[in-house]
Simulated assay, not measured.
Amino acid sequence: MGAGREVSARWTAILLAGQRPGVDPLAAAFGQEWKALVPIAGEAMLSRVARTLLACPSIGRVLILAQTPDALLTGDCAWLADEPRVGLASSGGGIATSIAVVAGGPAAPWPVLATTADHPLLTVEMVEAMIAGSAGADVAVGVVGRRVLLGRYPDNRRTWLRFADDGWTGANLFALRTPDAIRALDAWSTVEQDRKKAIKLVWHFGAWLAIRAVTRTITLAGAMRRAGRRLGFDARPVALPFAEAGIDVDKPADHALAESILDAREAG
């Protein structure tokens, strides 16, 4: 395994700001071509997430990855063009393959933290907790437990992966610490289309593991450890204690909730 072979003291943050082909419903609802430019609490989501990443002590550089990244540097996001710690790269047909092209290269040396522009509730504390929790792994995935999220926002709807210890939803935070993470990206590229379908996703990693997951006789950490070992890397979840880490903005209801949370933060 490659754990511990980081080549940089500070992390590169890959900020995913692209979108799938066709009209994005959230962008259209706000009169935008690009989802990343949808405003929330008075600022474009892309700008807000980039500011958070640049404020993190562990992050040395931010690389914005999108189909046409130059088109995003307008309005609230114009400042990014003059920020020396921000770079741009064009994405390809899939998230995992696009990250794999740049991860470990000059623009994004190891270790790498990937997150998304539709995560405007991201905080410095979340990022630093994610990085700290990933220590010793090749790959770590940020997650939020069902009890944590619904205990604070009981009406919020998420996609849950249910295991023996809890139901889990993604936090759109991925720590790629070593070159062995490329194997994880290769694996992810084959299952990406099923990431919102829990049963199909687990079946990609073998029938035995799928049965254990379906019967909830294995924890998420146990499942990730076994799947990673099978594919040649060390993988683990990082259970984040922040309910808001599990809320991204995909639809108007998410936007309304996130905006109310941001307004409350600023008022507080």
Results as ranks from 00 to 15, higher is better:
L122E: 00
V124A: 05
S134W: 09
D76H: 14
A129T: 09
P111A: 01
A132Q: 14
L65N: 11
G42Q: 07
P109I: 10
E43W: 02
D82V: 02
D118P: 00
A71T: 13
I64Y: 10
S91C: 12
A117W: 00
C77I: 13
V124G: 00
T123P: 00
A78F: 10
L54S: 08
D82F: 07
S90G: 10
V102N: 04
I131G: 14
G75R: 11
R61W: 01
A132P: 00
A135E: 12
T115R: 01
I131N: 11
L122N: 01
C56T: 01
A107H: 00
V62H: 02
P84Q: 05
A96T: 04
A100I: 01
D138P: 07
G60Y: 03
A132G: 08
T123V: 02
P106G: 04
R48W: 03
A117K: 08
G75E: 14
S134D: 11
S91F: 09
T116K: 06
R51E: 13
M126C: 02
E83V: 07
E128H: 10
M130H: 10
A132F: 06
L63C: 03
T97Q: 13
V124P: 05
L80A: 15
V49D: 01
Q67Y: 11
A50Q: 15
R48I: 06
D76K: 10
A44S: 11
G133L: 03
L80T: 04
G93E: 14
I64W: 02
S98E: 15
D118Q: 00
D70M: 15
A132R: 12
G60I: 04
A55C: 06
P57S: 04
P69H: 12
W110F: 10
I64R: 04
D82N: 07
A100Q: 10
L46M: 06
D70Y: 11
A41C: 10
V49I: 03
A96H: 12
G75K: 14
P111G: 03
L46Y: 01
A44F: 05
S98G: 12
D76E: 11
A96D: 13
T74E: 15
S90R: 13
P109G: 05
S90Y: 11
V101M: 12
G104V: 00
L72M: 13
V127I: 12
A50S: 15
T123W: 01
P69E: 08
